[in-house]
Design a protein around this nucleic acid. Structure first.
Lengths: 197, 197
DNA sequence: TATATTAAAAATGTATACATTTAATACGAA
DNA sequence: TTCGTATTAAATGTATACATTTTTAATATA
């Protein structure tokens, strides 16, 4: 398998793993030396990282609680729209896939649970079948990852029950109910994580 | 007043005004010569233009009807959310401002109508008070502009009546009604314009 | 004619030098 | 000291040379 990580992947992972000091400036010259490339590709990477809310004005972006609420408002808007679509489109096989992710999250270790929960939400979003909305959702990937890590590590109560309830509402074709459930689910993730951060 | 347009603004306007041939490649070298700058700032500008769906893979982006439907799905999702917020937040002064834009659109020439209609929708979106969602909406600016131009030039029927009905529903605090009206309004813009493009 | 194959050209990717702007520091006057 | 100003240093912006990749075109072969 291909082990070659792109420069973007390297820098992104280093940020997510807390390698950088949040108070120090991420200057192009410094990063270029660190990763042994020139400033040109570093600039490209910084742009991408700003796009996904990991970097801002040359510093690691440290969103305020207000910022996180706004980012989650965006996430909730997209995911609740997705659930509406899922109610209209998902067939038995899709529901089975969703339940499979819940099971994986239940049985696996933290790392596997993290992946399974991501797969669960990504599967929902794919119900939208709209590349522009998908890209907008993907912009939130890093933010969602950071939240999900806290939620899983600190073992937020009821999380998987909420997932199961959402699947059930989709299966029962209850649009409003399903939407309300995903909204409340994500709001709980938000408040829980804000409390621990 | 400041007349100095940035390179980004120049290229963007030239694209919107149809200066470029949609079939020819927008190579960095060519554009650099044309605008008498080096490739570096041109690359920056091309990235921005890709961000707002005006350029793709070095060509002017010519979305398919399917693409336009997807872009409008995104627009509708944001604007209907905005209207929900407007019902909860807008006071008399805000409603007055909205009605003012309708009046301007009614009385002015095409150019003024275009601006007034943009102001109307921008005012709605500002009800969200979420910089991330605003930025996502702004990404659609060029697309919305191209549609609005057709709608105004070809004088789509009922357009301003629909605006007025939306304001009225906001004033009456009828969330579901107002949302349904903005959705239907935007879908009409979409279908009307697709028909003429 | 259609299809590979390869040579040439032209594009983008990267490194780097230089220009300009912005930030940091040092110094002097109130 | 504190504030303003000048000087310097360091950052980003831009141009450009060179490397690599991609596209085009030309030629040969089925």
């Amino acid at each position: 398998m291909n082990q070659e990580r792109t420069l973007y992947e390297k820098v992104r992972e280093d940020i997510l793993n807390g390698t950088f000091d949040k108070t120090e400036k991420m200057t192009e010259v410094k990063l270029a030396k660190l990763y042994e490339v020139s400033r040109t590709p570093i600039r490209e990477v910084l742009k991408q990282l700003e796009f996904e809310y990991l970097v801002k004005d040359g510093y690691i972006y440290t969103p305020s609680p207000e910022d996180y609420r706004n980012l989650f408002e965006m996430r909730i808007l997209i995911e609740s729209h997705a659930v509406e679509k899922a109610v209209l489109l998902f067939v038995d096989e899709d529901l089975k896939e969703l339940r499979n992710y819940i099971k994986q999250a239940k049985d696996g270790d933290a790392s596997l649970t993290l992946k399974a929960n991501k797969n669960f939400h990504d599967k929902l979003v794919r119900a939208i079948r709209n590349p522009f909305l998908s890209e907008t959702y993907d912009r939130l990937n890093s933010t969602i990852y950071l939240f999900s890590r806290t939620v899983v590590e600190k073992q937020r109560p009821e999380l998987l029950d909420e997932h199961e309830a959402i699947v059930q509402s989709i299966e029962d074709r209850k649009i409003d109910h399903a939407k309300q459930q995903i909204i409340s689910h994500l709001q709980k993730d938000l408040e829980f994580t804000l409390y621990y951060m």
